[in-house]
Design a binder for these strands. Structure first.
Lengths: 154, 154
DNA sequence: GCAATACAGATAGCATCCTATTTATTTTAT
DNA sequence: ATAAAATAAATAGGATGCTATCTGTATTGC
């Protein structure tokens, strides 16, 4: 029975991580509805703000950890809302350069406040050492997973 | 700067959890392609096996942590493949009862082996104490998130 | 007994991610 | 110099989750 229990625990861990991220997404979703941006849309704004105007879509996608086509649609929405501007790169006519509009910058401020409040609410009971430990675990899992992925593909 | 750094770390933690679960799903996806079941489909099979034949869709959905409509579509696929059988509940004509077919039971065996191998591969570098600690963190986050969710809805 | 409410499941439609392919442009190799 | 390969972004289509709504059945309240 000990073996069985251990196996179930490990099994549940990854399952519950997925569950947790779905729930977190739902919380963010309801929190951002009032701002008029979807949950998927706020992160590109913050990353763009952090990386600075004038970057390419490809680099923003890499920063977000999503694929190019996934970003294209989100950008279409953000550009339609006037939060981001997409211009052509004079030095490479295949590429597009991204920049926050003034409204986009204002939105970044609002989003940053909301996200910080929600994250604080979620993490406030954890000490710095615990946060760091979780970060370390996640990093180890990421590394291992990347190796596994590479092995399955190669 | 200290404040800034801490903030970014916390920020990254939840972001990276989402990233991690997406990657894990991708690994499972490529591993299960050869079995002819999608990543979303294997978990209902295992849960049904664990819960036993004759349960209702509603209870399986609750066990999986997904909503009824999300399960309906997955079940349609699994039934079309002949892995699960859906029958009417004589005591309540609204409800349907679920059972694994013989092929479904065989699939459960294959899936269990594959999942166990992948999870072992991912988690083998973690000690039991570390696994338990991660579980504890996840549980605390789940609890806190549920409270937040309830507060936002009420 | 019958109307109102609750519940199980299915359907419709949205959001987000992915991979595969297409188009336009740039870089590399012969 | 030109043909082949590589690259940036867009488009097409699939998978998975959600909420809202519909249908049929059971339960509750008067």
């Amino acid at each position: 029975m000990t073996t069985e229990t251990t196996k179930v625990d490990k099994h549940n861990l990854l399952y519950r991580l997925g569950f947790l991220t779905r729930r977190w997404r739902q919380v963010l979703d309801s929190a951002f509805q009032s701002l008029g941006v979807t949950d998927a849309a706020w992160r590109p704004l913050l990353h763009l703000h952090h990386l600075g105007d004038g970057i390419r879509q490809k680099d923003l996608a890499a920063s977000l950890g999503i694929e190019g086509p996934s970003l294209t649609r989100i950008l279409d929405q953000l550009i339609a809302k006037g939060l981001i501007e997409r211009s052509e790169d004079a030095s490479d006519r295949r590429a597009k350069l991204l920049a926050l509009s003034p409204q986009g910058r204002a939105m970044v401020t609002e989003i940053t406040g909301k996200v910080a409040a929600l994250e604080h609410d979620l993490l406030s009971s954890f000490g710095d050492a615990e946060i760091e430990q979780m970060s370390s675990f996640v990093e180890r899992l990421e590394t291992r997973l990347q190796e596994t992925r590479a092995r399955l593909k190669g």
